[in-house]
């Protein structure tokens, strides 16, 4: 409600709504990193993420006339991106070991860099193991820094649901990452 499009020119959105492809190109460039981020955190595979982001932007273009200017364009895009990513991972399970193979080949020197990398990949895996609905809340909160209200608006759920899903997700993650949490 209160979140209007302060970060992007309403003018661009209006132009894109009227069919201006250049204006839409500007919007794509502006939101590229964030959308890629969200879909990558959702599906954990760079190629699936790329595919999901492309489909999401094309969908956004097709449904742009449904977007209401007084709401947040970013959150509207996030919703499309998350739904698209969820559809894609249901259709084709991401190849879980794709990014790990490189990791193992680097592991010979066994320094802290590799350890950090290993831990990060472990985190990526446990986040991916969460149910889609909880993962979406975690992604928007931890990686995109959205407030509870913004998450509720983006996913079209209540604030109470945001709280319970976040609580559930963090409890699960804390369990699965307990080894890292007790270390230091």
């Amino acid at each position: 409600m209160g979140s209007s499009n302060t970060d992007v020119s309403t003018d661009l959105i209006v132009k894109a709504q009227q069919g201006d492809q250049e204006a839409f190109g500007d919007l794509v460039r502006y939101f590229h990193d964030r959308v890629i981020n969200v879909v990558y955190r959702m599906c954990g595979d760079r190629y699936l993420a790329e595919e999901a982001a492309q489909i999401a932007f094309i969908k956004a273009w097709q449904h742009l006339s449904d977007f209401r200017l007084q709401t947040s364009f970013r959150n509207w895009l996030y919703r499309i991106a998350i739904n698209t990513a969820t559809d894609i991972i249901r259709k084709e399970k991401p190849d879980e070991n794709l990014d790990d193979i490189q990791l193992i080949s680097n592991q010979e020197n066994g320094d802290t860099h590799v350890e950090n990398e290993e831990r990060r990949q472990q985190i990526r895996k446990v986040v991916l193991a969460l149910p889609d609905a909880s993962r979406a809340v975690i992604v928007l909160r931890e990686y995109e820094g959205l407030s509870y209200r913004e998450i509720a608006e983006t996913l079209d759920i209540s604030m109470g649901t945001v709280m319970s899903r976040l609580n559930y997700a963090r409890n699960r993650l804390a369990e699965m990452l307990s080894g890292y949490l007790e270390e230091t």
Binding site: Q21, F24, G25, V28, R29, H32, D33, I36, N37, Y40, R41, R46, Y47, A49, E50, A53, Q54, F57, I58, W61, D99, E117, R119, R120, Q121, I123, R124, V127, I138, E142, Y143, R170, L173, A174, L177, Y180, L181, T184
Partner: peptide, 29 residues
Amino acid sequence: KLIVLLKDAPPVPAVHSKDQFAAIIQSQL
């Protein structure tokens, strides 16, 4: 600790640059 741990995520590996990506999208509009 958990929140800090989660935030220390591997950077997103990009397939295309921002401009390449926008060009791909625009060609499909």
